[in-house]
Design a binder for these strands. Sequence first.
DNA 1: ACTTTATATAACTGATTGGTAATATAACTA
DNA 2: TAGTTATATTACCAATCAGTTATATAAAGT
Lengths: 107, 107
Amino acid sequence: MQNEKKHSNLFEVIAEANRRHIIEMLRVRPRSVGELVKRSSLSQPGVSKHLRILRDAGLVTTSRESQKHIYHLRAEPLREIDNWLEPYRQYWSDRLDALEQFLDEEE
Amino acid sequence: MQNEKKHSNLFEVIAEANRRHIIEMLRVRPRSVGELVKRSSLSQPGVSKHLRILRDAGLVTTSRESQKHIYHLRAEPLREIDNWLEPYRQYWSDRLDALEQFLDEEE
DNA sequence: ACTTTATATAACTGATTGGTAATATAACTA
DNA sequence: TAGTTATATTACCAATCAGTTATATAAAGT
C-alpha cells in the first residue's frame, strides 16, 4: 500500500477540516460510515480514507453491526495536543494576575 | 506573490513541526531570525518562510533592532485550538474528580 | 447462485507544501 | 559610496495531500 506510514504526527491529522468534522460527529455518538458520508460533503471513499487516517492515529476504533462498520471516537490521543498547549495557556487566561505571568516568564 | 491567502486555518499552521519549534523558541524569549536559523535545521529562507506564515496567522509580531528583525510570540490565537479541544478533555481527565468535572462542564 | 448493501482499497490527478539556491531589499559601517 | 550584515522574496522542484472514479471485498437478502 502506498499509504503506510503517512501522517506521522497528530497535529497533521487534526489539521484537516473534514477530519475534525468527523471527530465532532463521532463525539455525539458512534456512527456508521454511511451516516458520516451523509453528513459530510465527501464521497464514500473520501470519508473512508479519512477514517483510515484517524484509525491509524488511534483516534477512532471500529465495531461491526452486520455489514455496517461502526466508528467510535477515542479522544485520548488528543491529549498530546492539549499538553503541547499547556505552556501557552497563561497568555490568554485572564484569571492570571500580572505577578504570576511575570514569574512564569522568568523561567 | 503566489503565497497570499494560504494556510487559512490555524490547525494547519501549527501542524508543521518546524513551525511549532519556532513557536517554542519564541516562548523562551523574543529572537532574531538569525538566532532562529542557528537553532533550527533549516536554511535562512526556510525559516523566513515559516515566519511569514506565523505572522499571517497572527502568532508572531515583529520589532526592529537596527538591521535585525526581532520576532515575538503572540500566543493568543492558539486559544482557538484550546477551545476546540474543550469537549474532549473530559475523556482523559481521570485525575479530575466527579465534582470538578461537573463544574468544568458548567462553564 | 445472484443481487443488494456497505465499506475499503487502488489508481490516478491537480493543487499545495516545504525545502533550497539565487536574488532583492534594507540598514548599518568603513 | 562601496562593502557587509540581516532578512525577505522569487523561482523552482520533489513529495505529499485530498479528492475522485473504478474496483474489490464482504455480509445479507432473495
